[in-house]
Design a protein around this nucleic acid. Structure first.
Lengths: 150, 150
DNA sequence: GAAGATTGGTTGCGATCACAACTATTTCGG
DNA sequence: CCGAAATAGTTGTGATCGCAACCAATCTTC
């Protein structure tokens, strides 16, 4: 590695605040979707599907995008399936493949919750930041992400 | 709330990259401490205790700093206690209180792992950022944190 | 100084999730 | 084509962690 072994105080400050605050932030966002019977995991699943063509996504791709293992996704699907927010659709061409498809009920729920969730993201994070900080976070995590995914 | 309901594209980019990349980053850091028989949770526990006076911390304070529930900490302690990295010390003055105290074995382990962990933080995150981005992340999460903890 | 509230910590239980092993289907090498 | 390898998804198992209920010790209030 190029850099010295330790982090200087600016770096350490950024690292520590980032790590601890991220946990708190997630819990606060979780609190804000709970009244709708959703976890953040559920919300992200619904949001991810809603942006895909035909509001459906292969299980495999969905797992990748949600950073879940395939077994993790199978279990998470149990919840959204039993609530009928998502339907399971078997692919006719390749019968190994199943799609997760947003139902009308799921779509309606998401339309109701999304503005509230995004308002939470604003209230808890974005509204406290300068435009420069927003851009810096975007570019910083973009570089970190590019390095992580070769 | 003051702001508009939706996030603009800069804000959305920052938010999404932050959320997804944070998960990936955590997994990568986890991979780097695993060879030492540690989880990131264990590492953070040891690191937190090591910075306290006498390298000991009340269970309660430790739980707060690690963002764990008290029961969560009890269970996590099982691991570090059975590895004898941490010892349980009962307070004589207030007999409700237990301290988690870093053992010599735990201290030696931490001295070995800390440089490697910090090198990972550099390699995976800090070294990819400009000084301005590091400062922006520090100030941004500081403000988010201040808002979260009233 | 005794009753009730508060604080510190553990335990029972349920939810979430990853890994490994498994089944089913498709694709590829020869 | 046929068998081997790859791909998609599920299930068994174990780890982690929060909530609620609990016990024990201390503090508070009258």
């Amino acid at each position: 590695m190029a850099g010295p072994k330790w982090l200087d105080s600016e770096e350490m400050k950024a690292w520590r605040l980032y790590i601890t605050t991220s946990v708190d932030l997630m819990k606060a966002l979780e609190d804000d979707v709970r009244p709708f019977g959703l976890t953040m995991g559920d919300y992200q699943l619904l949001a991810m599907i809603s942006e895909a063509p035909d509001r459906r996504l292969r299980m495999c791709d969905l797992a990748d995008q949600l950073r879940l293992s395939r077994s993790g996704l199978t279990r998470r699907m149990d919840g959204v399936l039993s609530n009928a927010w998502v339907a399971r659709v078997q692919d006719q061409a390749d019968r190994r493949v199943a799609y997760a498809e947003l139902t009308t009920k799921g779509w309606n729920l998401l339309r109701k919750v999304a503005p509230i969730h995004l308002a939470s993201v604003r209230r808890l994070m974005i509204d406290h930041l300068t435009r420069a900080e927003v851009k810096a976070i975007g570019s910083a995590f973009e570089k970190i992400s590019n390095n992580l995914h070769p």
